[in-house]
Each structure stands twice: as structure tokens, then as C-alpha cells.
Design a protein around this nucleic acid. Structure first.
Lengths: 342, 342
DNA sequence: TTGAAAGCGCTAACAA
DNA sequence: TTGTTAGCGCTTTCAA
């Protein structure tokens, strides 16, 4: 049978005090007799009293909870972000209510509704690839629930954002390949398959660098490449069969790059002599591949921390937030061999 | 300024009805005039009314929330579990409050307290490596909050469990290496560095198979190996310098195995001819290594699903749970090359 | 078919 | 230093 949890009223009755006295005594209210204070805390401990946060929340109109929506938790990059969010939330006394949209717009809308219903104090979002309509976020903002977007952002909504230097990272990758003597650099990108800022920026960085070097990528280099090892493999295979195959590949991420490595090896070509590779580091695999993969770093943990801090800041200054911030975290080229021709 | 959220009372006033009428109308109570019902729902929509779950929860003494505690979210295996939990929770109308202990006993105790305070309806736990005292879980059980343990379990507490066939998996790995002609099989294990059932079972499976084949591992094979690629590398290096180096390695997990591969290659030995390898698949890297890594599968997503179902079951039958279940999910040997000598 | 009233557990203003 | 009171938003008996 259900054992009832002790309440403030139970303690008050037992001690012939009033509930408010107990409440105050428990939270170390000033100007208070240390005698009753001790009496109360002792009994509370004995009865295993734990405050009912639900009641507190209802009373205080606040939940000390942050809602988080991400596309997929099993994605290593996102899981590091979550770790960072959890760390900062915890340090600041917040809890995390976590939803994954599974890259589905519909699920995302439901998730937002659930978080609003739960009256979370703020929301962190990286929206799904499908999302082009942002009304659900606007609805949350209208309720005065601050939102901070990370990694995937939109100009449609006035809100703070945290991103990494996708454009700069793509530039670094492309420039590095050029430095190594690559002449025909292909980009295994996702830009054509989605409308995410990340993919767009990477594509732009790549194209801009080529342009600055008076190069234009072969028309056929523009492959519709997905997000997986399999897609990377497939696309690279096609690239290598072209009359003018690339001698450098800038892959959207390391899993795609890993597929590319496989295809290159299978074609009897050597890495990096015949084809050099760089990819964005979304998965923790750059050290596992053979050869080790050069990557553009993505500081996921830090992104989570920064996003959480930004959000907590806005939550605490509810009335005063007038200008939203965009934090851009640096990327870095980490050379491990697969791109080093010398 | 804070825009107030519409409440049932607002709707009641506007329509000159009583709050209870509105409440009932909104939830399609039977024997009700469809006229006022429509009136109410229309206004609710217009005012953007969303029920205040906090109030509902306080009133109903339930939160429809599942608390989850895991050691580390960035661990791929755990992130797949979370994905499975979220899927089932969502399907059943539950939300997930998520904590990570960071393998710290202290944090875990705080996490449990936070979940109890929040009055979650049930808790899913994989406890930290440090945890040897289980009082915090007992406290939760005494509050009548059901707990289901997954992956890492304890006999100390009467509760349902979900595990994989660690023992059988270890047997499969060891037997496979023997089948391939390995004579001196080492186990890069964690059993000496922690007291987890998983490590213990794997060690036992390994030892039992050897014993059945009248083999005893060299004394020096017993290395204190941690959980990382670096540790796997370090330990393997030591193993290979022994007068009687192993010709087969059963690694606790694929990251450790990956380190082992590196050490073997560096020693100028070939895989699997000189040393064959099998590891438990905790990270998604078996396809990335060179050669591809043979693994014992661990169905993380399924584990999350099963654990969530078990918990939801207990939550719904609160009074009736008399016998706790232990679900054991099968493991499988997946051969990819690093262990195939022929 | 609708309404009144009580109460979930806690807190904060105000009073004593 | 302690108590009274009201109320957060909702639901659920019971009465009209």
C-alpha cells in the first residue's frame, strides 16, 4: 500500500506549530529561534521529509527546469552537448527535461507543447532537419519562455544562438587540402538535402576558398550525400569513377569521411597520396580509422555549457533581455595524417 | 512584461460558468451538453489555453514522469539506451527527467534526491562504478517509487533488472578465439578496477571456458585495464612484451580493443594471424578500425525499451507488484575479420 | 446538465 | 518569534 510522504503539515501538527513556521524553519529563515529550528529539522529528518517540489513549483510559478530538444541523442556530437548542458544546469540548481525529436518536425511540435505544459523555465533547441516552420517556437516565446538555439539556428526568430565556426572550419579544411597540393577538391555535403545553416555555411566556406584560388569544382562533384558512412562510401565511389576524380575530399563529417576512406581503399588508391581527406568531427572516430582522420573540431561539450549559461542568464533576467546574443565557438583543424601528403 | 497564461478560471469567468464545468467540458466528460462543450473548447483555443501540468500533478499526486540516472551520456551504449527509454516513455505518455552521475556516487545520491523531490513516478538506473552503498535507492523504494535497474545491477535491492548476457557473450568470444586456434587468450578486463556485475560476468565467462578446455591464462595476463583506448593500448603493449605473449585478446569493449589493435600493429605483428581480437561493442566503431573488429553485440536500444516497459508496468500496478523480473537480452558474436584466422 | 466547496503541499504577506 | 490567511490551478465529490 502507498506509504504517504511526510508533509510540512504533518510536522507542524506533531510539533503543535503552524505550517508557515515549519516552512520558514526548514529554510533557515533569519530572526528565528534556533531551538524550534532544531526541533523542526530533527523531526523532518526522522520522518524522511522531502519537500514536494510540485507544490513549491505551483506556488512559485517556476519549475527550475530546463527543457532540451535535440534531434538524436545517439549522435555523439549531440550527446556531448547534452553532457555540457547537464553540467551547467546542475551547477545552477536546474534540472533537465529531455526530448529527442528524431529529426521529425511533428515530434518536435509535440515536444515543445509538452515542455510548455510542464512550465519549464527555459528551452534549449537544436531543431530537426525537417523543420521549416517555426511557429511552435514562437508560441513558446509568446508565453515568455526564453529559448536558446544551438548548432542549428534560424533568423526567423529573435533569440540567442550558439554555433560553431562552420564557415571558418570549412575554409580551414579546404585551405589545408589546397596547401597539401590538392587540385580537385570535392565536398561531400548535405546542403542539398536539408536547409540547415551548418550545411549551408560549410558549403559556402568551401566554395569561397575555391573561388579565391580561382578554382571551380567539377559540376559532377556535387553529390547528394547523406549523413552516414554508407552514404559517404557510395558518393565517393561515384566520385572516383569520374573522368576527373577528386584528389581531395572535404567531408561533411567524420562518419561520411570514414565511408570515403573505405571507397578510396577499395579503388586501390592510397590515402593521402592519391586522395586526401578532411571531415568535421561529429563522431568520436578520427583516431580509429586507418589512416587516422584529419578533422575540423566541434566543441560539443562547450557548446552545451555556453548554451545553458546563456539560457539561464535570460531566465534570470526575464524582464530585461533586450538583445539576444550569438556565441560563435571556434573550430580547429586537427591533422592526423589522412590529409598530410608530405 | 510577463504575459499570463490563460487558466480554467479565466475561461469560466468569461463564459460565466464554473471552473468545474470548464474542467469537465475540456476533457470530454460524458453526459454533457455539446453546446457548452463547444463554447468552452473554442474559447480555450482562442486564449491559447494549455493545462498547467504542475497543478494537475499536485492535485493528482502523480507526474507522468520517469527519472533516469546513467553514468555518462556520451558513452554510446548508454545513449542508445536513453533513446530506447525515450521512445517507450513517449509512446506511453510519460516524460523523461534525465540525470547523469558522471560515475560519481555522490552525484548519484543527489540525483536520486532530486528525482524524489520532483515526485517522478518511477526511476530507471544504471549506477556508477563507485557505488557500493545502495541506501539511496532503498529510500526511493520506501517512498513507493518503483525502480528498475539496467545493465548494472545489484542483488542488494529487490527490484526488476534488465541486463545483457554478459556471461554468455564472454563465453562466445572466448570460444570463438579458441575455435580460431588461439592458445593463449588474454582478457583486457575491468573486473579488478570495479565491482560491476558486467565486468564480473565477463571475466567469469572467459575463465570458465578456458577451464573447460583445461587452459589457465598466464598469471601476467591479468592486467588492470581501464575503459579507454589508451588503456587498451597500454595494457596490450605490456602483454606483447611478455615471454609468452597472447595470441588472442578478448577485450572488455571495442574502444579498448581499438587500443589493442594499435599496440599490436606497432609491435609489427599482424591481426588476426599473430593476435586475434574480440571485444564487446560499447561504441559504434567496429566498422571503423583496421581490420574491422569482431564484437559481441550489446542491444542498447532494446535494453532501454525493455527497461522502460518494465518500469511503466510496475508504475501502473503499484499495489500489485509482488515479484520482480530480470530480463536478460541476448548477445551475439559478430565476426568482422579481426578474429578470423583462416 | 451545471455549480459549490474542499483540498493537493507549500509560501509569503501580514498580523499578533 | 510565531500564527493566520489566502492562494498557486486544477479535479472531484456532492449537491442543486
Amino acid at each position: 500500500m502507498k506509504k504517504k510522504q511526510a508533509t510540512i503539515i504533518d510536522i507542524a501538527k506533531a510539533l503543535k506549530l503552524s505550517p508557515s513556521t515549519v516552512s520558514k524553519a526548514l529554510k533557515n529563515h533569519p530572526d528565528f529561534s534556533s531551538e524550534t529550528k532544531k526541533l523542526v529539522t530533527d523531526l523532518a529528518k526522522k520522518l524522511n521529509y522531502e519537500p514536494n517540489i510540485i507544490a513549491v513549483n505551483l506556488r512559485n510559478q517556476t519549475t527550475n527546469t530546463i527543457g532540451v530538444i535535440i534531434p538524436e541523442i545517439i549522435h555523439f556530437f549531440f550527446s556531448t552537448i547534452i553532457a555540457g548542458i547537464e553540467e551547467v544546469a546542475y551547477q545552477n540548481g536546474y534540472h533537465v527535461m529531455f526530448c529527442q525529436s528524431n529529426e521529425s518536425y511533428e515530434k518536435e511540435v509535440l515536444d515543445i507543447k509538452a515542455l510548455i505544459d510542464h512550465r519549464v523555465d527555459g528551452i534549449l533547441v537544436s531543431f530537426s532537419k525537417e523543420t521549416t516552420n517555426f511557429d511552435h517556437f514562437i508560441k513558446a516565446k509568446e508565453r515568455n519562455t526564453p529559448i536558446v538555439f544551438f548548432d542549428r539556428i534560424t533568423k526567423t526568430i529573435d533569440a540567442s544562438n550558439v554555433i560553431v565556426e562552420d564557415y571558418q572550419g570549412a575554409r580551414k579544411a579546404t585551405e589545408h587540402l589546397l596547401d597539401q597540393g590538392c587540385k580537385r577538391i570535392a565536398h561531400l555535403d548535405l546542403a542539398s538535402t536539408n536547409n540547415l545553416n551548418t550545411s549551408r555555411e560549410r558549403l559556402n566556406g568551401y566554395l569561397d576558398v575555391l573561388k579565391e584560388h580561382h578554382l571551380t569544382p567539377e559540376q559532377e562533384y556535387d553529390q547528394d550525400c547523406g549523413d552516414s558512412k554508407e552514404e559517404g562510401y557510395k558518393c565517393t565511389k561515384i566520385l572516383l569513377q569520374l573522368p576527373n576524380p577528386p584528389d581531395g575530399i572535404f567531408a561533411n563529417n567524420d562518419l561520411v569521411a570514414c565511408g570515403a576512406i573505405q571507397a578510396i581503399k577499395e579503388a586501390g588508391l592510397s590515402i593521402p597520396q592519391d586522395v586526401a581527406i578532411v571531415g568535421f568531427s561529429n563522431w568520436q572516430i578520427s583516431e580509429m580509422t586507418e589512416p587516422k582522420l584529419s578533422t575540423i573540431s566541434q566543441p560539443g561539450m562547450e557548446m552545451g555549457r555556453v548554451a545553458a549559461r546563456l539560457l539561464i542568464d535570460e531566465m534570470r533576467n526575464k524582464e530585461k533581455v533586450t538583445q539576444y546574443k550569438t556565441k560563435i565557438l571556434p573550430t580547429e583543424l586537427i591533422i592526423r595524417g589522412s590529409s598530410l601528403k608530405k
